[in-house]
Design a binder for these strands. Sequence first.
DNA 1: TAAATATATTTAAATATCTAGAATAATAGA
DNA 2: TCTATTATTCTAGATATTTAAATATATTTA
Lengths: 100, 100
Amino acid sequence: MNIIEVSKVLSNKTRVDILKWLKDPESNFPPHKDIDHFDDGVCVGYIQDKAGLSQSTISTFLTAMQNASLIIPTRHGKWTYYKRNEKVIESYIETLGKDL
Amino acid sequence: MNIIEVSKVLSNKTRVDILKWLKDPESNFPPHKDIDHFDDGVCVGYIQDKAGLSQSTISTFLTAMQNASLIIPTRHGKWTYYKRNEKVIESYIETLGKDL
DNA sequence: TAAATATATTTAAATATCTAGAATAATAGA
DNA sequence: TCTATTATTCTAGATATTTAAATATATTTA
């Protein structure tokens, strides 16, 4: 877990919003058509619609968040689902509490 | 306390270093010539020397950190001393723990 | 009062990052 | 094969970062 890299992710409102939305997918996204749960998170298209940014920007954001280990991708057929990596999120906050 | 603004400060290694250095000025800076304590923090010149960046960059950094309420300035004669704003730092970490 | 020092601010230039849009690639389903 | 979803690449314009140099301001010292 890299403090600078994670902080960079958190320095953009959309990226923070995405993390928050993924905390409660039931409230923030419509149900998926193929699955009746959000155990692996939310597909990219829904995140893109909700954020209102371009496909390439959202994909870049998600890749950056994944590189920072803040989210975990899972492939479901044609879709890539993203869910939060709670361990890393906790670890970031805990590390700040100790080191900062 | 603004999460995005604070995260932006923390997305740069030098700025994080400055916050860490200010946590223990005795270990990280030489004593000031006019005062024998660090109760109000450390003067800009010492921070600049330690960081090895230009005067205007350090001044800009400190202003951004002050705008984010992460540090508190105190004037002592010709010098401006900066110390950490522990309340805001704690508040940021606490807010992340709740909201993120 | 004048000169020197510490810091802040401004400006210009170089470099880096952000974001969109378009195009293409990769993967999977029909 | 054709289509849908996501990832990647490229270009381009907008914004941010960082430096250097210059100027401004406040304070101390001579």
